[in-house]
Design a protein around this nucleic acid. Structure first.
Length: 432
DNA sequence: TCTGGGGTCCTAGGACCC
DNA sequence: TCTGGGGTCCTAGGACCC
């Protein structure tokens, strides 16, 4: 049996733990730059606020309604998440962390227990110890466990835990569950299934395996098997990432190469940091830029390029240089750029690096690596971006004397304090 | 004025090999 | 007029997830 633990309205619930005044009100949490809605309280959902709604449209769509809007605070959510995961680790034989607000539990050897009761207790414990409401689904496959958790979330009578452990329950659950809500069925598959006259997961379940395989390939067939109770969707427990991406939209559009290069340098530096953190090195650096697709009045442009490094590396200077080199080949004058990003891939462990004839001298790389690790240490101790490579803050604004990077940094005007990780934030709150 | 970020997997088709 | 057979690897794009 598998369990799936899912936080209810994760980001909003995190905020409410430390600000109880938000209870019972429509609350939304916004994406970077306070761009659009990424999380909603039940009250906000009831109002009809859709996920992904641009923040500025809320006032137009809901005139006169008081909606609490908060900037996202990932430091807080990440810390709350790790507390919950720690409880799960102690509760289950093994867990697979699936995302910041979800984890699968592998319940091997617990089949004889009263799993319904066990799940209800676990949910209550998390609520009591961390303050987070969670819904739990338990079933023979991960896909069915996901389905069960949605039932647990929707119907209070389940007491936060829904168990699918008999044929009867499985078929009943399938019958009442829209196929588009099945894990593994996205927008495109839904369109196709609806066109074929399939609307509930039971109808999908009743299709022939051959037909499913033909129309939806191996991925669709796996989902189909999972609904039949055959476990075949892997946990994807990935110790180290196969690719690492850092990308951002800019609050103000960028037209000049220097400013864009500054942003790209920062993203490359961040990728390098994440890479070192997982003890990896990357062979490929991809840079992409796009204009603003919402501005019909402006010419559109988007492009990407990959730069292969002679030798895989994780040093900040090398990855910045590769990214800047890539940017040079795709940058075009005359466009208003809204977003850029850097992806590093071809990742291997850093102990198995194959050298190259055309490489940097070993001594130079060693220096770069030592420098990068030193930066990590200083930045960990004193805060992000205490030490940066010069190109990350170039050019300096002649009027203000401030670096370009600060001129275009992310906006988050409604961010809550980092209650659990920053003592200064906590002191400020109490002082108020 | 203002529209997010970060991943994985699969498949088809092209390049290349003998 | 006619131009083989069998394979691997890589990449872009499309699907999915949160």
């Amino acid at each position: 049996m598998f369990g799936l633990v899912d936080c209810d309205n994760c980001y909003v619930s995190c905020e409410r733990v430390f600000n109880p005044k938000l209870e019972g009100k429509p609350v939304v949490v916004l994406s970077n730059n306070d761009g659009c809605v990424v999380a909603r309280s039940p009250e906000a959902k009831a109002l009809g606020i859709k996920e992904g709604t641009p923040y500025y449209q809320l006032a137009e769509q809901f005139p006169g309604v008081k909606i609490e809007a908060l900037s996202s605070n990932y430091t807080l959510y990440g810390d709350m998440s790790s507390r919950i995961m720690e409880i799960l680790r102690q509760a289950a034989p093994s867990i697979e962390i699936y995302s910041i607000d979800e984890a699968f539990l592998v319940l091997d050897g617990m089949e004889q227990m009263d799993l319904k009761r066990w799940g209800e207790d676990l949910s209550q414990r998390i609520r009591k110890w961390v303050g987070m409401p969670v819904s739990i689904g338990i079933a023979p496959t991960r896909t069915l466990a996901k389905m069960a958790s949605k039932y647990a979330k929707k119907y209070p009578a389940y007491h936060k835990c829904c168990l699918i452990d008999t044929e009867e329950k499985r078929l009943k659950a399938l019958k009442l569950f829209p196929v588009e809500d099945v894990w593994g069925v996205g927008r495109r598959y839904t369109e196709k299934l609806n066109y074929m006259g399939v609307h509930t997961s039971l109808e999908f379940h009743n299709m022939s395996a051959a037909r499913v395989q033909h129309e939806f390939h191996i991925t669709g067939l796996r989902t189909w098997k999972e609904l039949h109770g055959e476990s075949c969707v892997g946990p994807d427990v990935i110790e180290s990432k196969k690719s690492i991406c850092t990308s951002r939209s800019f609050p103000h559009m960028i037209t000049d190469f220097e400013s864009l290069r500054t942003q790209v340098s920062n993203y490359a530096a961040h990728c390098a940091f994440k890479l070192r953190k997982q003890h990896g090195v990357a062979q490929l650096v991809t840079v992409f830029v796009t204009s603003n697709p919402f501005r019909d009045d402006l010419p559109q442009y988007g492009n990407s390029v990959s730069v292969t490094l002679p030798t895989p590396t994780s040093t900040t200077p090398e990855l910045i240089m590769a990214a800047a080199q890539g940017l040079q080949t795709i940058f075009r004058e005359g466009y208003h750029y809204k977003k850029a990003g850097v992806i590093v891939s071809g990742i291997t462990p850093n102990y198995a690096v194959q050298g190259s004839l055309w490489d940097l001298p070993a001594e130079k790389r060693k220096q770069f690596l030592e420098l990068s690790c030193l930066m990590d240490k200083v930045n960990h101790k004193n805060g992000d971006d205490t030490l940066v490579v010069a190109s990350q803050q170039y050019p300096v604004d002649r009027q203000t004397g401030k670096a370009a990077v600060f001129k275009n940094s992310i906006l988050h005007d409604h961010r809550s304090p980092c209650y659990t990780t920053n003592i200064n934030d906590v002191i400020k709150v109490y002082a108020r």
